[in-house]
Nucleic acid binder design. Structure first.
Ligand SMILES: [Zn+2]
Ligand SMILES: [Zn+2]
Ligand SMILES: [Zn+2]
Ligand SMILES: [Zn+2]
Lengths: 133, 133
DNA sequence: ACTCTAATGTTATATCATTACGCTTGCTTC
DNA sequence: GAAGCAAGCGTAATGATATAACATTAGAGT
């Protein structure tokens, strides 16, 4: 194997921005926070995000068109990941469940379907926000 | 209880368009197909889609920003639905699995998370396209 | 030095979705 | 029937998200 290749400047800026936030950010949110660092165009952010998500350092939340830093000390795309997204406070919990994965793969096998990328997202209210309700 | 309230003209047009297609359509795709019926603005389509998805007659595919007609003889929002989306031919299979649902709800319960809406989408290659590869 | 790959910078454009406002329709209530 | 209400509609403008195209730069491997 080889060196884990360091992140570039733009990639680091974007990942740091995501990590500092406790909620998902859209690419444009990220861009706004990085204007003073010299970033000017959406594409600079999207390109960094592409690399980061490929490496499992960040995740895209499809139902929000937004992104979060990986919460799991780096997933490395470890199989199927699920997200529980609080619609009130924006917190995102990341989970990975073997049975869930097995179940999806079982269905796919029986159908002859070959999954390439799987999205599991629950939107609702987190424990903290529920008690406050 | 009461009558199942008929669909309006716009809602019918949109649902028929979705039903006639074998692949997901974006709101603008739908609009294009309905211009000769007199529709002119995206909002007319989005409003119809909102009603249709609320009633379980159509579904939104979050990872595609697109819509499909319900394939299950009307879901009526019957719990958690999963989708298997072929990235080659665009076919969409709809499935509903009790164990899957149980597993998600179990996790949510343990965390005190209250899911409101759940998205499960697998993108990959369908059986038909796989043999053709 | 040559080549290959990844990343970058910039401009312009494409695609997806909502806000705002006013009108019409059907229904309920006085 | 008039007044009030809710859902739907039409239209224009705008906002939000994402990519295409093209030229350039930096580093690794030979
Ligand atoms: Zn992760
Ligand atoms: Zn919360
Ligand atoms: Zn359905
Ligand atoms: Zn296919």
């Amino acid at each position: 194997m080889s060196e884990p290749k360091p992140l570039t400047r733009n990639q680091t800026l974007v990942l740091d921005t995501l990590s500092a936030e406790h909620a998902p950010l859209s690419a444009y949110d990220i861009l706004d926070r990085l204007r003073e660092e010299g970033l000017k165009a959406p594409l600079q952010v999207y390109r960094a995000l592409e690399t980061l998500t490929e490496r499992g350092l960040a995740h895209r939340l499809e139902s929000l068109n937004a992104f979060v830093a990986c919460a799991g000390d780096d997933c490395h795309r470890s199989g199927v990941i699920g997200f529980a997204i609080c619609e009130k406070c924006g917190s995102v919990a990341e989970f990975s469940d073997f049975v869930l994965r097995q179940r999806l793969e079982g269905w796919a096998d029986r159908q002859g379907f070959h999954p390439h990328e799987t999205t599991i997202e629950m939107r609702g209210m987190c424990a903290a926000c529920s008690v406050a309700a």
